[in-house]
């Protein structure tokens, strides 16, 4: 066991050199790298903590919002029910009003249709009644009756007012045609003479008179002098009756409806 002091000195120097070399190549680089890595890890941890805190804050905010929504849910549902009820009532009222309006329109159209049908029916009935009357009159209009009618017509010609007589006389003066006497049935000779005499006495003396039988003159006589026509017959009466009936039906059908419409509008 001996100590070589030269070796001791050399080993001291070696050791000091080794300290410097390891400090240069080992401790400094390693500690620096570890420190930087720790800094980076610390930064990442700080970022992660911040992100986690943000996430927790956001989650808490969402939870608060969800809780608020839960608390408001019943209120919102009740409000929605109230709105739905109000909407339903409003729609029902609207539909009811539309239905009433359509019903009124339908009733009005129905009344119109009924009026038209009634009016047409009445006209048809009146026409049938008059037609039956014409047929009855035609059936009963024989020669004897025609003779009486001719006598009556002659009397009527004789009793014409002055204005009518003058028009007929002027017409007779203007035309060169004979006076045309039309009857529904053939007149007997005495009746024709009576009428001819009455025409000669009252309208134009000496004018030629022709007689003709036509079907449209019903139970009466029609005299045509130029452009003037004088007619007296049951058909004329019936035409007047038909006109009066038509006017009455028209008045009967439109009068009450007009009042009803005024009431509905009011």
């Amino acid at each position: 066991m001996q100590i070589d002091w030269l070796t001791v000195a050399a080993q001291i120097v070696n050791f000091l050199i080794l300290i410097w070399l390891l400090q240069r190549f080992l401790y400094k680089p390693i500690t620096r790298a570890m420190a930087r890595r720790e800094e980076r890890i610390e930064e990442r941890l700080a970022d992660a903590r911040a992100a986690r805190k943000d996430a927790e804050d956001e989650a808490q905010a969402w939870r608060d919002r969800q809780q608020a929504l839960e608390e408001r849910k019943d209120e919102i549902l009740q409000e929605a029910r109230r709105d739905a009820d109000a909407l339903r009532d409003r729609l029902e009222a609207e539909i009811r009003r539309q239905m009433e309006h359509q019903r009124d329109v339908f009733a009005e159209h129905l009344n119109d249709e009924r009026s038209v049908v009634e009016q047409a029916l009445r006209k048809r009935m009146a026409r049938h009644v008059l037609k039956a009357m014409r047929r009855i009159v035609a059936d009963f209009a024989d020669t004897e009756l025609q003779a009486q009618l001719a006598s009556r017509f002659a009397h009527r010609v004789e009793t014409l007012d002055d204005g009518q007589r003058k028009r007929l006389a002027d017409a007779a003066g203007r035309t060169h045609d004979p006076v045309l006497v039309e009857t529904g049935v053939e007149l007997p000779a005495p009746a024709r003479s009576r009428i001819t005499r009455a025409i000669h006495d009252s309208i134009a003396d000496g004018i030629k008179v022709d007689y003709r039988t036509v079907e449209d003159v019903l139970m009466g006589i029609r005299i045509t002098i130029g452009d003037q026509i004088v007619e007296w017959s049951a058909g004329e009466y019936l035409d007047r009756v038909e006109t009066i009936v038509a006017e009455s039906l028209e008045l009967a059908s439109h009068g009450p409806d007009g009042q009803a419409r005024e009431r509905s509008h009011a």
Binding site: M1, Q2, I3, D4, W5, T7, V8, A9, Q11, I12, N14, F15, L16
Partner: peptide
């Protein structure tokens, strides 16, 4: 070597 250990101990 005692020289080495002595050197280290002296350090």
């Amino acid at each position: 070597s005692l020289s080495t250990t002595a050197a280290l101990a002296i350090c």
